[in-house]
Simulated assay, not measured.
Amino acid sequence: MTTYSKYFEKIRVRPDRKAEAAAPRAPACQWDGCAEPGTHRAPVGRMREGEYFKFCFKHVREYNKGFNYFSGVPDSEVARFQKEAMTGHRPTWTVNGAATARTSSPDFAQQRSGRAGYHNRLRDPHNIFNEKAPARERKAKPLEAKALETLGLTTKATGEDIKARYKELVKRHHPDANGGDRGSEDRFRDVLQAYRVLKTAGLC
């Protein structure tokens, strides 16, 4: 007995006409003179985003080789587009008193520039956005205030003032220059400790 029969060769399967009719047909390729189905999309171009041509595989490759989104656009406009693309084409402005909008829209620039800036309409009790606001005096911590007092300085002293005062006191109370004065040696240690505290705090 054989598993192969000559009658198998005569069997024919009837094609499913309904399935063929229901299958969607691709539109014809939009390339001039081409009758192939347009199975591939290609963008139409600038200012027509969301619109596409339908090409066959061969012609979509040909189209993409010569496609230029910025065709006919001046270099200055291309550079502006690239700059705005860094922020998703959203307007930005500097965080200071002159809030000039970094945008290409003149209307937006007028609305957001100068005294009409958005942040100028906010409450600003701490003068964060006011570039002409006077610098606030740093309030010294108790340990820092005591160290400044040891050096004979006030909280308004700058880093240069602290260094100059430190050098002066070190020369005056150094063991090689105090003549064996015990009180001067104690004062020398206090000066060293005070300067170390101020340096650790970043004041000098």
Score class of each variant (00 low, 15 high):
Pro27Trp: 04
Ala177Met: 11
Gly97Val: 05
Ala145Val: 01
Gly202Tyr: 08
Arg48Ala: 15
Val60Ala: 15
Leu192Tyr: 00
His59Arg: 13
Ser5Arg: 04
Thr87Ile: 12
Phe129Lys: 08
Lys6Tyr: 11
Asp186Trp: 07
Thr87Trp: 01
Pro91Met: 02
Gly38Trp: 03
Lys167Arg: 11
Ala133Phe: 01
Val197Asn: 13
Lys65His: 13
Leu192Pro: 01
Glu185Lys: 09
Leu192Asp: 09
Leu198Ser: 07
Ala135Asp: 03
Glu137Leu: 03
Arg112Met: 14
Lys18Tyr: 13
Arg25Phe: 06
Arg123Gln: 11
Lys171His: 10
Gln193Ser: 14
Glu144Gln: 06
Asp176Pro: 01
Pro142Met: 00
Met86Pro: 08
Pro134Met: 08
Tyr166Thr: 02
Asn96Arg: 04
Leu169Glu: 03
Ala22Lys: 14
Ala157Arg: 10
Val191Pro: 00
Lys141Thr: 06
Trp93Lys: 03
Asp190Lys: 10
Ala79Gly: 05
Glu20Ala: 14
Glu51Leu: 15
Arg46Cys: 05
Lys65Val: 07
Pro125Thr: 07
Arg187Cys: 06
Glu36Arg: 15
Asn68Pro: 08
Asn127Pro: 07
Met47Pro: 00
Tyr7Asp: 14
Asn64Met: 05
Asn96Ser: 12
Lys83Ala: 10
Thr154Gln: 04
His40Asn: 09
Lys167His: 04
Arg41Trp: 01
Asp107Ala: 09
Phe188Pro: 04
Lys18Ala: 15
Ser184Glu: 12
Glu84Asn: 00
Asp176Ala: 14
Gly179Ser: 05
Arg46Gln: 10
Gly72Pro: 02
Cys204Gly: 12
Leu198Gln: 06
Arg182Asn: 12
Thr87Tyr: 13
Pro15Thr: 07
Cys56Asp: 15
Glu131His: 11
Arg123Ile: 00
Pro106Met: 05
Glu149Gln: 05
Ala85Gly: 00
Ser105Gln: 06
Arg136Thr: 02
Lys167Gln: 11
Glu160Ala: 15
Ala140Phe: 03
